[in-house]
Design a protein around this nucleic acid. Sequence first.
DNA 1: TCCTAGTTACGTACACCGTACGTAGTGCGC
DNA 2: GCGCACTACGTACGGTGTACGTAACTAGGA
Lengths: 237, 237
Amino acid sequence: MAGKASVPSVIWARPERTGRGPRPAFTRADIAAAAVRIADDGGLDAVSMRHVAAELGCGTMSLYNYVPRKEDLYELMIDAIGAEHEIRAPSGDWRADMIRNALETRAIMHRHTWAPRLMSGVYGFSPNSLRYLEHCLDCLAPLDAPYSEKMELVALLNGVVTTYTANEIATSERTRSMPWSEEEENAVRIAYLGGQVATGAYPRLAAAFMESSGPIDLEGVFRRALERVLDAFDPAC
Amino acid sequence: MAGKASVPSVIWARPERTGRGPRPAFTRADIAAAAVRIADDGGLDAVSMRHVAAELGCGTMSLYNYVPRKEDLYELMIDAIGAEHEIRAPSGDWRADMIRNALETRAIMHRHTWAPRLMSGVYGFSPNSLRYLEHCLDCLAPLDAPYSEKMELVALLNGVVTTYTANEIATSERTRSMPWSEEEENAVRIAYLGGQVATGAYPRLAAAFMESSGPIDLEGVFRRALERVLDAFDPAC
DNA sequence: TCCTAGTTACGTACACCGTACGTAGTGCGC
DNA sequence: GCGCACTACGTACGGTGTACGTAACTAGGA
């Protein structure tokens, strides 16, 4: 009556099995693990329903019993790597704990370089996401602020971690995938960017590039950004 | 010798036309405009090489003369909406100027809701990106800091704008696309999330949801986040 | 001036994608 | 024990990006 999908579209809202008919051959964890394995070596584009089904050793369409749409498969993948967060008791120093959490998230994303691309299209209420969110709130207990503000902190921090790490991964993959890497860096930055700057249209950019020296320390930039975000929530600042 | 692609993969590094053979029928701007038009009504998934070619009134494979790979089409799209930034002379108040820039970026993204999804896979040195970056550095002239720090400010601010706006768009599209919108919100948040919380496994989350009241003011949250990030760079704080 | 090399234009073809649909087999709840 | 809900999966359809081959065209060098 209301269209094709009369069932909640969020996969976490439907039970894993209902207890009728033959028992399912796989768990969601199995499927997620297979998909993650494929994405880890082969990239996100290698994750297709056919491919995942083959990895599991079943027919393509059988997968649709477990995962109604491909988007839900992505959801399972995000949840699966969320399990890699090592939850440990808060130390009492909320800044240190949150920095640790952020660095761990970054490490996970570097381990699964497809993750940032998925992050921005996903629901965010998977079991492991809830677990991680709960843990963050736990770490933030010493901070005297309403929960709404703590939620904003977590959201902001996660956003910064995601965008920064996405950038790191993008640049690293760009230079890795090119056979000319060094030459490309020169050809583009000098011939094009340098060419643009030399037109005089971008005087401040030109000055900025003059000032910059040597390769930039990505982790340093990342940590500094974290500190700044945390500063913004620290009453002691 | 070195593989299939012996030409720089960044589209901005190759000239728009080379002056031999029949003159091109379209400019990059034409192509970008067509793609943006398609994405605006029809979503990003509607942007296919065939579709864009049809919109331009040419054969599919002709498009490949202008745009070697689809990824480059995305690059053109991002650059095209970057032109919507209205560059105006800095006011002297760098905080106000940067907030204006951020709000404008947010407005552009709300006008082109597919933009955030593209942002994290794109080179970032398109002409209009350079123009915008130059403008930001211009606005930041009154701020006494090295260029490296100003670059970090711009990066952090852009990251925050992108993630926040992406979230806004994601939630708004989720509730829009569902016929049950209100029911879904209840079914999921109460039946599932509430169910999870009721297990007692997430005490802090439970407390947070108890505390939350009424719908949240998205723009308020956004502005607050901006202010916080700027605080972190303001020597007067 | 003509020739030729580099471009544009574009149709065809291939491999792959998500998934709607139909059919067959299976085992729990009544 | 019956029936129904579930699993399993083959086939098929309409779509995708793009490699390749061919024909038309035009600017630079002879």
